[in-house]
């Protein structure tokens, strides 16, 4: 996984609540056997008409948000299906960080496994950032994971909380599986105990 470092980018507001992963990437685009190339299908039915033409009122079809690297979202973002294609599509489009008041559980896990940073902030602070975003290209945010700080265009900073383990993994680009395999002896020991205590699980 790529290391997450400080970056500055344009933030696009997508304020709808309960934005489900079917909207982030509809099921008909899940037929791929690869992780790459899903950005064209991101928010497909919100971004494009059935004939393939852009819907001009959708934020990512408007300058400067076409180049957004950050999304500002409503509560329960990423609910519904467990499809990891949702963070893959966001990353492939160029989104590196999503900021909102709450995220759905599976989406939250999936995002961090791929180096997509999710930041949870109180609704009032998200609202303030959305107001900033109204200023378009001037509304760049700087996201500093190391210092857990978002810096607004005017220079004001917002601190954020994040799970220390996830932060550590993101900053260092660590592979979860590698970390777990380092504990293989503990897994072996667990299985050995269970084979005695609950043998029907190993029949």
């Amino acid at each position: 996984m790529k290391k997450f470092t400080t970056f500055t980018g344009i933030a696009a507001p997508v304020p709808a609540i309960n934005m489900n992963t079917d909207k982030i990437i509809p099921a008909r685009f899940l037929k791929t056997i690869k992780r790459s190339g899903l950005g064209v299908s991101l928010f497909k039915d919100l971004r494009f008409d059935p004939d393939g033409s852009e819907k001009p009122d959708f934020v990512l079809n408007q300058a400067p948000f076409r180049d957004a690297a950050i999304l500002l979202v409503g509560e329960n973002f990423g609910c519904g299906s467990s499809r990891e294609h949702a963070p893959w599509a966001l990353l492939d489009f160029g989104i590196r960080c999503v900021i909102g008041p709450s995220f759905a559980d599976i989406f939250y896990n999936n995002a961090f496994k791929n180096g997509l940073l999710l930041i949870t902030l109180p609704q009032a602070e998200v609202d303030a950032l959305m107001e900033d975003a109204g200023r378009g290209a001037n509304a760049r945010l700087t996201v500093d994971l190391e210092n857990q700080r978002i810096t607004r265009a005017g220079g004001a900073a917002i601190a954020f909380e994040i799970d220390p383990f996830r932060r550590h993994c993101l900053l260092n680009g660590l592979d979860d599986i590698g970390l777990t395999l380092a504990k293989a002896d503990k897994i072996d020991a667990y299985e050995a105990r269970q084979r005695v205590a609950r043998p029907w699980l190993y029949g």
Binding site: S81, S82, N109, K113
Partner: peptide, 29 residues
């Protein structure tokens, strides 16, 4: 790797829907 895995909870099993990275993690570990 499916959000409706919770179905199996009907048996008193802890059944969790996961993403593809986690599918890989479970396969490996």
């Amino acid at each position: 790797g499916d959000s409706h895995t919770a179905t199996h909870g009907a048996f008193g099993a802890l059944a969790i829907g996961i993403g593809t990275s986690e599918v890989e993690h479970v396969l490996a570990t």
